[in-house]
């Protein structure tokens, strides 16, 4: 086994008296899709917010490629190659696809100090990325407001790719999508991992998770209660782990 891309050790997050995350150890490897499962309030969101730099952990360490990191802001996390695709996507509907992919990181050529946009070049880059993702979006100049939910996910993924993200966190990417669109986004997720990205996928949909992920981690009451390889488990076991019906989880619950 090569060193994992990301290692979380003893990650704990308390909000006052509430412990949202409690001593979580988790590794994410390059080239794999790791699914995070768990009921509402299980700590998944808190966990990814810590990874994304939106929350500072109360205790515990994070290392990326063997180097310890501490994030003061989402920008810090982005700088080490962690891209988070939030559920609400944070895209600007009134701007074009290309403008969204490059928003805040435009390619410019300075003439007398004035940063002129290199529009042709940005359009080409986005066109290539969309092709690579096989996203079936023909015009990088189309406004994002005219796209479907799945196409918007593709734009958000392009944004992550342009960041040269090493870890892409996807929060419920298929929650609001039609069936065909869901398929497309799952394909994109797989393709990201095949490019060598580590992908952390949060989803409530067990079928989706079984289709696309290599490994699964189940969270419950702020703890990681189980980790399974896809080929070593089945949906029934995962559901019982999530709900707490599984004997392992019951034993854990009793310990507390």
């Amino acid at each position: 086994m090569p060193t994992p891309l990301l290692e979380a050790r003893g990650l704990t997050k308390r909000f006052g008296a509430l412990t949202a995350l409690s001593g979580v150890d988790l590794d994410v490897n390059a080239g794999e899709v790791l699914a995070l499962l768990g009921d509402n309030g299980a700590g998944k969101s808190t966990f990814i917010k810590v990874l994304a730099g939106a929350h500072a952990p109360t205790e515990g360490t994070l290392t990326i490629g063997g180097t310890p990191v501490a994030f003061a802001s989402p920008q810090d996390a982005a700088n080490v190659g962690i891209a988070t695709i939030f559920q609400e996507l944070a895209l600007s509907e009134n701007l074009s696809i290309a403008e969204n992919v490059f928003l805040g990181r435009e390619i410019v050529r300075r003439v007398a100090g004035v940063p002129f946009l290199r529009r042709r070049e940005m359009k080409d880059v986005v066109g290539r990325l969309l092709d690579e993702l096989d996203a079936h979006i023909s015009d990088p100049d189309a406004p994002v407001g005219s796209l479907s939910g799945g196409q918007r996910q593709a734009v958000a993924i392009c944004r992550a790719l342009y960041l040269d993200a090493r870890l892409v966190i996807m929060d419920e990417p298929t929650a609001a999508l039609a069936v065909a669109e869901t398929r497309k986004v799952l394909d994109l997720t797989r393709r990201l991992a095949d490019r060598g990205c580590a992908v952390l996928l949060i989803s409530h949909n067990i079928a989706d998770v079984f289709e696309v992920s290599d490994r699964m981690a189940v969270f419950r009451r702020g703890r990681k209660v189980a980790e399974r390889r896809r080929d070593a488990t089945d949906p029934e076991e995962i559901v019982s782990l999530i709900t707490g019906a599984h004997p392992d989880v019951r034993a854990l619950d009793k310990q507390q």
């Binding site: 989402p74 600007s92 701007l95």
Partner: peptide, 18 residues
Amino acid sequence: PHLLAVGNSDEKARLSGI
């Protein structure tokens, strides 16, 4: 584009690093 992004939603613009 930064100005138009802020006009669309300042929160989304902030999340995009503007």
